[in-house]
Design a protein around this nucleic acid. Structure first.
Lengths: 201, 201, 201, 201
DNA sequence: GATGAATGAGTGTTCATTCAT
DNA sequence: GATGAATGAACACTCATTCAT
């Protein structure tokens, strides 16, 4: 059944995002996506010119929030370092709760041949970002609020603490015997907890 | 070409482990595995009775180290809490360096239908483990060495800090512009760093 | 090459019926069926969801004539017993000339594991059918037109005399040295002959 | 486990006969046969030079009884016609009870390409046999004991009445709701019954 | 835009057969 | 003679993709 006007493209994209990033079904076929979206399988090719291109499309879409967030946050001079990190942790945990399998998906796809990396960040921008963080971080280290470490390690720590719990949910739930609601609450509680782990003072 | 003795089964298993867990090629076909092992495609079925059974076999094998390590470590009364965690971090980082995509692989497979969880831990054992950790953790919290948190959160933090960087390697490398050797060194450096992040004093 | 309208499904079904039931090629592969039908191999799965389901489909189709014929015939009160049998012999010989290997096929498939019997007749209907035959048969036995026998034996005789010659054709031809046309005529001649064998008077 | 001396060949042959002709498993693989015989799969090739040759071997063996029986019976001048037919019916029903699927098997195999007919009867012998029957049959027809028919039709009737019920057993059982023992008894009862159907007087 | 039919390349799997031991 | 390992061809089946309508 066709949806009004040309919202079909959006419908397909959102269905794909749900199946890929929310349900974590990496092996999902175009038929499965089409079926769940209630459209014909051929339409996926009509709009996206193939399965791989649909990947790229949904990925770019999903990255937008984080991509923009990072740049706005870390290039700003007005916001304090702790607030920057705090905002990032909040945004990133929310993003990972929304799309738990986004990174898993990307990493898995990277390991195939002929996959094009869908990240827009330029080398220059990247260097400046890390440099900004490094400056702020050095102060915190000097004040004894953060153990001595490079900016890279600090970024890795932050992202690890935010991202991993979301997609490892089935694993942790199995190991710890926690239900869905409790696990979700635990992840949300981590917003504050992670800041305390990252910063001592 | 037959291999000496009857090590072909082992050869296939190790090749599969490499492709799945080291190279992260989740979509690897039996043909690819057979080709890389230098054997006939049919042999995989001869020894493992199908692709899915090969999964289970390599998984069980790869889990052995961690599975045994965790139980030996956390059920012991003689070792101090910090040393337990330290040993676990060391073992777990080594394991993740060896097989970076093991968990990603498992999580991805869980989200398919009809997958049997290959973990041996009983609910009783799990409860006792968490209880043991909780006791030790409370002391550390009281002494101000660890921010107030549940045993579950502490475990999640520890595992996240160890596991995520290994399989997110292509992502971080792309974002930070680091080469293979440097990235590997950085992960090894984390053994000490993670302890400092987890424990303040 | 697409066929006009959407008769491809019918084309596949009829080709399969010909290969299975007319030519008696039990081992026919999907490729062989597709090739003879002039369609792509995948289409068989598109329409029938697998080889086994194609079996069931063609079988149900081929059984329809006999299935319906038997019920109409033997549940009718208006037709005399001899006419019932005569009509059945005629129909059944025609059916066996058309599809000589249908029963062989079914019996062979039954002896495999996991085969579902494609016959619709209920136990109640079966009992009533045999009872009806028994009543009429008793009269014929009393009158000395039929040797003393149970209804079951009478049915077995009738069906044996009709069905066996059709699919044992290559065997009989070899043993008796008869060509195709002559053999076909001989089977058609049996319509009258069988009645004379079954009924003496 | 090897059997004493060189009885392995016999063991394989008899196992194959059971699976093919008794259980009616036409699709049986060499692995299944080897497994049931308790021998290695390769041995089948060692003794029989391939699956098809095993077919021929077991077939020739199974035909021996009938083949010899027919010739001894119908070329003899000393035995009366009715006794000849009676003996044949008895022997043939016993043979079909022993190996119900032998003919089905043969017919199915004939319809494949490249199958060699495993029957030894020469055209001359065949003609003489039919001629002998024809002579005796004419007398019976003249005396009104048998309806007017050719020798060929008479042979077809006889064989049909004997052979069909044995391999159509699952079909008839399903249709008539009879258990194994009862069905077996019914077939044995047919020895007399068939004679009454063939001969009126 | 939208659909169902159709295709072809690929994917897991089976199996008769071969061979070194 | 006997065995288990190994092979290659064939098989059913899947699935992204194309195309006529």
């Amino acid at each position: 059944m066709p949806v009004l006007d040309a919202q079909t493209e959006k419908l397909i994209k959102e269905t794909a995002m749900r199946i890929f990033f929310v349900e974590g079904k990496l092996h999902a076929t175009t038929e499965m996506i089409a079926k769940e979206a209630g459209v014909n399988r051929g339409l996926i090719h009509y709009y996206f010119k193939g399965r791989d291109r649909l990947f790229q499309a949904v990925f770019t879409e999903a990255m937008l929030v984080v991509d923009r967030g990072i740049q706005e946050l870390f290039l700003s001079k007005k916001i304090s370092f702790r607030k920057k990190i705090g905002d990032f942790v909040e945004m990133f945990i929310d993003q990972n709760l929304k799309y738990p399998y986004m990174e898993t998906f990307l990493i898995t796809e990277i390991n195939r041949e002929g996959f094009k990396f869908p990240i827009s960040m330029t080398p220059d921008l990247r260097k400046q970002l890390l440099k900004n963080i490094e400056e702020d971080l050095k102060k915190e280290i000097k004040e004894g609020n953060v153990p001595k470490m490079s900016a890279e390690q600090f970024v890795i720590n932050t992202i690890s603490l935010c991202a991993y719990p979301a997609f490892a949910k089935p694993l942790f739930q199995q190991v710890m015997g926690i239900n869905d609601a409790a696990y979700r609450k635990m992840i949300l509680d981590r917003k504050n907890l992670i800041m305390k782990v990252l910063f001592r003072g």
